[in-house]
Amino acid sequence: MYRLSGVVKRYRRGRATIDALAGVDLTIEDGDQLVIKGPTGGGKSTLLQMLGGLDRPTSGTVELDGTDLARLSEAKLTRVRAATVGFVFQNFNLIPTLNAQENVEAALVPLGTRAAERRRRAAEALESVGLAERRAHLPSELSGGQQQRVAIARALVKQPKVLLADEPTGNLDENMRDEIVGLLEKMWREHGLTYVVVTHDTAIARRASRVATIRKGHVKVAEN
C-alpha cells in the first residue's frame, strides 16, 4: 500500500522555482487501479516517478508498505525498483540491441536469477502477451504495439507488486491502444497488482475505479 503525505517536488529552472508537486496526500491500497490524469506539465509523471522510486521528493514522505522511499539509500531504492515495481513507458524504452527475449530477461538480471530460469520466465512472459513467436526479434523489427507488449512482459516477468505505466498508449494508434489497455487491465486482474497509470486518454480514465486529477501540483481523487 502506498501512503503519500505532504509530498512536495520543487525544481529550479533558471531563477524560477517550479512546484511540480505541491503537497500531495494520497493513499493507494494494494490491488487498486488508479488513473492519474491532468494537463501537460501538471506533475503526473513526477508523481509516478515518486511512486516508482525513480526520484525523491523535496519534502514529504512516500511510503510503500510502511517504508519511506524518500529515505532509502540508493542501493535499497534500486532493490525496491528491481523487485517490487514494474514500469511501462510511453516510448517503450526497450534496449535496441537486445531482442525481445533478452529485453525481458534484462529485468531479471538485478534479481540474480540464473540464466536458464531467466530464459524460461522470459519465454512465459512473452507468451502471456502473445509474442512467443517474436522472441528473437529486435525492437526495430516489431510494431509499436508489439514493442509495448514486450515492455509489459518485461515489467511483469519479475512478478512485481506494483505496475506503473506512464502514458502507455501515447505512441500507439487507436486499435493498438485498446489492445494494450485491455492487456494491462487483464494483467492487473490476473496478477493482483497495484496498477497506477498516467494518461491523457479519457477513455482509459473512464474505465478506472479511481481517478486522480493533478493540476498545478495538487491532486484531487475521484471514485468512478
Partner: peptide, 16 residues
C-alpha cells in the same frame, strides 16, 4: 541516456 536510465529504472545498479 534513455537506455541506461531504463536499465536503472528496472533495477540495474549503477555498478552494473
Amino acid at each position: 541516456v534513455r537506455e541506461f536510465g531504463t536499465l536503472k529504472a528496472i533495477g540495474w545498479r549503477s555498478g552494473r
